[in-house]
Write a protein that binds this DNA or RNA. Sequence first.
DNA 1: AAAACCACTATCCTTTAGGATACCACACCA
DNA 2: TGGTGTGGTATCCTAAAGGATAGTGGTTTT
Lengths: 112, 112
Amino acid sequence: MKNKKKQVQLRDVQDVIDIIGGRWRGAILASLCDKPKRFNELKRDIGDITPRILTKELKYLEMNKLISRKADTTSVLYSLTEHGYSLDPLIGAIVQWGQKHREVILAEPSLA
Amino acid sequence: MKNKKKQVQLRDVQDVIDIIGGRWRGAILASLCDKPKRFNELKRDIGDITPRILTKELKYLEMNKLISRKADTTSVLYSLTEHGYSLDPLIGAIVQWGQKHREVILAEPSLA
DNA sequence: AAAACCACTATCCTTTAGGATACCACACCA
DNA sequence: TGGTGTGGTATCCTAAAGGATAGTGGTTTT
């Protein structure tokens, strides 16, 4: 890692990994991609997530301007921001490579 | 997450995250992108990594067919496979989004 | 023959992500 | 007025990733 440019790129990669990595953030973004949702609605949709974690992840995503939180007196609505939507094509590309990767791994069981 | 297709995609994303995420795997791939290297050469190039971790990560990357290990009597050479190189454009796309993301985050310090 | 380099392995420890469980304040509904 | 739903907090715990430090067996170098 003498190469400065590569180090900067690695930092960028780490930032993105941090955003869509982890156990839940991808699932939350995917769920909100469908439509804006309320807290408990997200909780039900995602499944096994505990409220503590959901709160934490939502705060993280909000801080990163990927989702927005709008509260009226009685309920709270989370939705993707423009910036959040801009992740969509990137995730598409990742999914594509991931599929190819699985093929590579599963093919030729061990034709080393 | 009722949506089956999205669940499959999430699994793909997780797989990819697992490969390029983590503290070191990105750095190892980046270093080998430059040219094939020997164990201690990688160690020096990457910097603070301990041999235990480097061994572990190299094994992981080899299992995933992203790098190959060639040993002659006296030394060992690690290099990217074709499959490993195929990650390059994806990482390029991730870096791009990451740069845009940093701009979004740093812009308008808090014009909420 | 000794020192240094190579590619590791072994043991132990710390940090962190994430989970389990319980609880809280508020509103609304019957 | 008590139960139900909403949007969370608080406290504690576990597991897994990763780090520190030391050592090993071979080779090559001087």
